[in-house]
Design a protein around this nucleic acid. Structure first.
Lengths: 246, 246
DNA sequence: CAGTGGTCTAGACCACAGC
DNA sequence: CTGTGGTCTAGACCACTGC
C-alpha cells in the first residue's frame, strides 16, 4: 500500500501542514518547486495536491498558488468524541479515544432477499443475506445499535465470535476483501421500541442514524448496515467542493 | 463553467448511468475505447472517471474495468426530503422539493472576533463579523435555525432584505465570490431554550446540527454558520473511499 | 497471452494574478 | 511581464485480470 510517489508527497505535505510548517492561509511551494524538490513530474505533484484538496486541507487558486485552509483550531484532539465518518472499524475508532469497546450480539440469522428488502438494502432479490445485529458499548455503556445485512455469498460463515470481535478484520484479512467505497446517508430519527430497549432509553429522545452500503474492490456490494447512535456519541465530518454548473 | 473536455465526458457518462444505459454492476467502456469515442487522451478520460468515482457512482477495478455501483433504487426522488449536503442555497433546495421557502430575521448586528469566537468560528481575532440569525420555514412551518457569522471585510453591507431573501446569491453574484469549499461537522444535540422558542418546540427533542466553514475562491474563509434542523427535515449523503494505510 | 486500470514522464498552451 | 495553476497530449512501463 502506498508505494506510489504521489502518496509519499501527499503524506509529507500533509504532515507539514499538520505540524504547522505551512500555517493556515499560507501557500504551499509552487507545483514547479515541488517538482524539483521531489524530482518528479508535475502530474505527480498535482495528484498529491488534489488529494489534500479533497479532504479540505488546501484550496488551489489559479494564478496564485495552493493555499492551506485547514483551521488552526485542533480542539478536536482534546475532546472525547466518537467520529463515525472514517472508513475504519468500531474497535479502531474506540481505541482512538481511549475507550474500551465491546459488542453484544442479539441476532444472527439468514434471510432471503425479498423485493422490499432489495429496495432497502440494494441487494438483488433472492440473494442469501446474513443478518448480524449488535449493541455497541464504550466502557460498558451502550452507545449504538448496528443492524448488518451481509451478502452471504461474499461474506460466509459469520459466527458469534467473528460477529462480536472483529467483523471488519474478518472481511479484510480472512476473506481478502478490500473495502473500497461506501455510500452513506445520515438522518435523525426517533427510536423504535426495540431500539429503546437495547440502548436502555426511557425518555423520548432521537437517534443519529447512518445507513451505509459498502462495496468491495470488485465493485460488488457486500454489506448494508443501519447504525443508530445515541446523540452525544455521533460526530460526522465532511468536506464539500462546489462544482460550477453550466 | 464546465467548458473542459473532461467535464463534458463526465456529464455524458453520468447521464448514461442515470438513464440506465450503463446499469448497476455493468462496466463502462474501457478507458481506451472512451479515448477513441471522444478523440482525447487517456488522462482526460481518467479525470472524468475519477469525478464519477468521487461521488460513488463507479468503482475502478484494476485489470477489469470501471464498474457502475450506483444502486438502482431511485426511491429518493419520490420522497419529499430536504437534503442539506448540496452546496446550494436554501431556496434552491426548498424549490427542488416543491415547497415554498421563507426566512425570518431575528438578529442582524456586528461583533468583533474575540479569542473564544476565533476558536469557534475559525476567523482571526479582531476581525469584524456580521451576525445574521434566521429562522427558515417551508410552507410556513419553521424547520431550521441558521446562525451565520460573515467576515464583514469580504461580505459587507448585509441588510434585512439581503439576509432574508438571497444571502447565497448576494455572495455569488453581487460580490463575485466563488464558493469553492466547505468544511462541515454534523452532530445531534438538544436545543437551547432560544432554539425551542424559535422553532416552536415544546416537548424535549433533539436537533440535527451542522457547523460549516465556507471558503471563497481565494481560499479565505468568509462564513461560519451553525444550522440546527428539526430532525425530520435533515438528510445528509456521503460517499467515502478507503485509502489503504502504510 | 491480450486487455485493463494505475502510475509516471516531458513536454505544451491557456487563463489568470500580481507587479 | 513573469509565475501560477488548469487543461491536455502522446507516449511509456507496471500489476493485475481473465482466458
Amino acid at each position: 500500500m502506498g508505494k506510489a510517489i504521489y502518496d509519499g508527497i501527499y503524506r509529507e505535505l500533509r504532515e507539514r501542514i499538520v505540524r504547522g510548517d505551512y500555517p493556515p492561509q499560507s501557500f504551499l511551494p509552487s507545483e514547479t518547486e515541488l517538482c524539483s524538490e521531489y524530482g518528479c513530474s508535475r502530474m505527480t505533484v498535482r495528484k498529491a495536491i488534489s488529494m489534500l484538496a479533497n479532504e479540505g486541507m488546501v484550496a488551489s487558486i489559479k494564478g496564485r498558488g495552493v493555499r492551506v485552509i485547514r483551521p488552526k483550531t485542533d480542539q478536536n484532539q482534546a475532546e472525547k468524541a466518537f467520529y463515525v465518518n472514517e472508513l475504519t472499524s468500531f474497535t479502531e475508532s474506540a481505541r482512538a479515544i481511549g475507550a474500551k469497546p465491546s459488542a453484544r450480539l442479539f441476532l444472527l440469522d439468514h434471510v432471503v432477499c425479498s423485493p422490499e428488502l432489495s429496495l432497502q438494502t440494494g441487494f438483488a432479490e433472492g440473494e442469501d443475506l446474513t443478518r448480524v445485529n449488535l449493541v455497541r458499548s464504550l466502557d460498558g455503556v451502550a452507545m449504538a445499535v448496528d443492524r448488518h445485512h451481509f451478502l452471504t455469498r461474499i461474506v460466509p460463515n459469520i459466527d458469534e465470535h467473528v460477529a462480536t470481535s472483529s467483523l471488519f478484520r474478518y472481511c479484510e484479512e480472512n476473506l481478502g476483501l478490500n473495502i473500497t467505497v461506501s455510500n452513506r446517508e445520515v438522518s435523525v430519527e426517533p427510536p423504535t421500541p426495540e431500539d429503546k430497549e437495547l440502548l436502555g432509553i426511557t425518555e423520548p429522545i432521537y437517534l443519529a442514524v447512518m445507513r451505509s452500503r459498502t462495496y468491495d474492490s470488485d465493485g460488488e456490494q457486500f454489506e448494508y448496515v443501519v447504525s443508530k447512535y445515541l446523540p452525544n456519541w455521533f460526530h460526522f465530518f465532511d468536506s464539500a467542493t462546489r462544482t460550477p454548473l453550466p
